[in-house]
Design a protein around this nucleic acid. Structure first.
Length: 498
RNA sequence: GGCGCAUUGGUGUAGUCGGCUAACACGCUGCCCUCUCAAGGCAGAGACCACGGGUUCGAGUCCCGUAUGCGCUACCA
């Protein structure tokens, strides 16, 4: 039987990087095995679900290059089927009506509520699983329902025994039925609940392998009970370790802000392939230790057995602009930017320059060669695509800023430089032809004549031409900027003012 | 409270069936290269493999306990 996996996010916000990683692993497994990767939007919580969120999930997957097969499924559309299934279980006596009034729980302290209830029940020796309606006669139950009394539908969990399954990542998992309460399938307003919906949808979609976050590991036992009650085949499960914040807490938007959102990486200049590569390395390790892997290599090497069990910490420092996200993610991105094929990088650079009004139409034809050369030169030390419009601005526009410390360090320190650089400009005007080599020869000669070190002129020129203290080799900058712009910038008075 | 899962340098991980002088990548330090910054090359710091017991000639690897973290425990998903 061929593999069918799915990614089933609930559209209640942006696409979280943990969810994105689940999607990636599902996708990799499907592509690896020649199976299908399906997408299901779990929008049963209509209050919190938004179309915008659904769109951002789809966009996010597209950005990461994770294409899905078959039609997109909206879980809300299947609610009637979920209800029908619950009613069938009711008919068969595998579920029962619970007429007890709904307990009110406020969302923010459910955890304490649960612990508190368990503690008092433990003290009083009450079996948490006891329910007076579990053994109500069918006639009585039908009569009360017919009279319009509201009820929830609960699954009848057998009183003795245990569920057992073999998790591909975590190994054998067992849980005694005494640990499992009769779970609610249908709310008293008829709304189907999560565990029911997932199971029914996974059955109807023919899912063979459920690959999802470890937070569902213990819920799996309940779901298995449902598969059995419904007489369906139980799929294989593979639970993934969680991705945690630096303090080992859960990564959440409320606490950690935009670093957890996939769109942030797109908006802050990540190359999709780089982020995908980084994500794949969180909780999974390639067999041969090679970490920079293309999409094809990822598919080739991926296996569920290679997934680790310990939660991974995603490192970042909110207050450090240089380290706003994980070091390794940033490194990976820089690695891709400087080594990926230029023609794959170019469209991304184009988008970035366009967004900052730095793109010129001739870059597509007449100036294409120049663009290729320039991008190839400056990409070497960039970390994100943003750098092309930020640090790289001086290559694409004559309107750029001078970095104060660069000006102080490379220009103002030596007052004679202002005149020296004008002299250099004069000399460069006579160089024929104008290139990296000839400009270098001219500059060194000029330095000798003036009796100063070449480095002084080189560093000064760099700051005059790019506004910065750091960057590519000076002579390559001359070459790329050309004689005219180089000379004009060398003569500029702007950095000397104020 | 109960149940479950996890625990290898700062981070991500590798360590099949017990033999490790604990490996790789990111980050960090220094040197080389050099016109700066990167990249690259070289060298290095950093882990008594959470802790305590046990099994064994020998344990990161097996067993038990403890601690810590996380998850689940809901008419949330």
């Amino acid at each position: 039987m061929s593999v069918r996996v799915r990614f089933a996010p609930s559209p209640t916000g942006y696409l979280h990087i943990g969810a994105a990683r689940s999607a990636l692993f599902n996708w990799l497994y499907a592509r690896k095995t020649g199976g299908k990767f399906l997408l299901r939007i779990e929008d049963t919580d209509l209050q919190r679900s938004t179309d915008e969120s659904t769109r951002s999930i789809i966009e996010g997957l597209e950005w990461l290059g994770l294409d899905y097969d078959e039609d997109l499924v909206f879980q809300s559309a299947n609610a009637p089927a979920h209800r029908a299934a619950a009613n069938r279980l009711l008919e068969e006596g595998k579920a029962y009506r619970d007429f007890a009034p709904k307990e009110q729980r406020s969302d923010n302290n459910v955890k304490e509520d649960i612990a508190e209830r368990a503690r008092t029940q433990g003290l009083e020796g009450v079996d948490p699983r006891s329910n007076p309606f579990r053994d109500l006669s069918k006639a009585e139950s039908d009569r009360r329902a017919a009279s319009g009394e509201p009820f929830a539908v609960r699954l009848k969990v057998p009183s003795e025994g245990q569920t057992k399954f073999e998790d591909i990542v975590y190994g054998t998992q067992e849980r005694s039925y005494t640990e499992i309460e009769d779970l609610v399938l249908l709310r008293s307003d008829g709304h189907p609940l999560y565990n029911l919906s997932v199971v029914i949808d996974d059955i109807t979609m023919g899912i063979t392998h459920v690959i999802r976050g470890q937070d569902h590991l213990t819920n799996t036992h309940k779901q298995i009970l449902l598969y059995q009650a419904l007489g369906a085949e139980v799929p294989r499960f593979a639970h993934l370790p969680l991705i945690l914040a630096p303090n080992k807490g859960k990564l959440s938007k409320r606490k950690h802000g935009e670093v957890v959102s996939l769109t942030t990486y797109r908006d802050r200049g990540f190359v999709p392939a780089a982020f995908r590569n980084f994500l794949a390395l969180l909780g999974w390790a390639p067999p041969e230790g090679k970490e920079v892997l293309s999409k094809e290599e990822l598919v080739e090497y991926f296996s569920l057995e290679g997934i680790g069990r310990a939660n991974a910490i995603f490192n970042f420092q909110e207050n450090d602009p240089r380290r706003w996200t994980d070091d390794k993610a940033l490194w990976m991105n820089a690695e891709y930017i400087r080594t990926m094929p230029l023609d794959e990088l170019l469209p991304m650079v184009k988008t970035e320059l366009r967004a900052n009004k730095l793109w010129r139409e001739e870059y597509d034809d007449d100036a294409r060669e120049w663009l290729l050369k320039t991008v190839d030169l400056i990409r070497q030390r960039y970390f994100t695509l943003k750098d092309f419009s930020g640090q790289g601005r001086a290559y694409f526009s004559d309107d750029f800023d001078f970095d104060e410390t660069a000006v102080n360090k490379n220009l103002r320190k030596e007052p004679r430089l202002r005149e020296l650089l004008k002299g250099l400009a004069d000399k460069l005007e006579t160089v024929e032809p104008f290139s990296g080599e000839t400009s270098e020869a001219a500059l060194r000669e000029f330095a000798d004549e003036a009796g100063v070190k070449a480095g002084l002129l080189i560093n000064g020129s760099r700051t005059m031409l790019t506004g910065q203290a750091v960057g590519p080799s000076m002579f390559e900058i001359f070459d790329v900027l050309g004689r005219e712009r180089s000379v004009v910038r060398l003569r500029s008075g702007v950095p000397w003012q104020s």
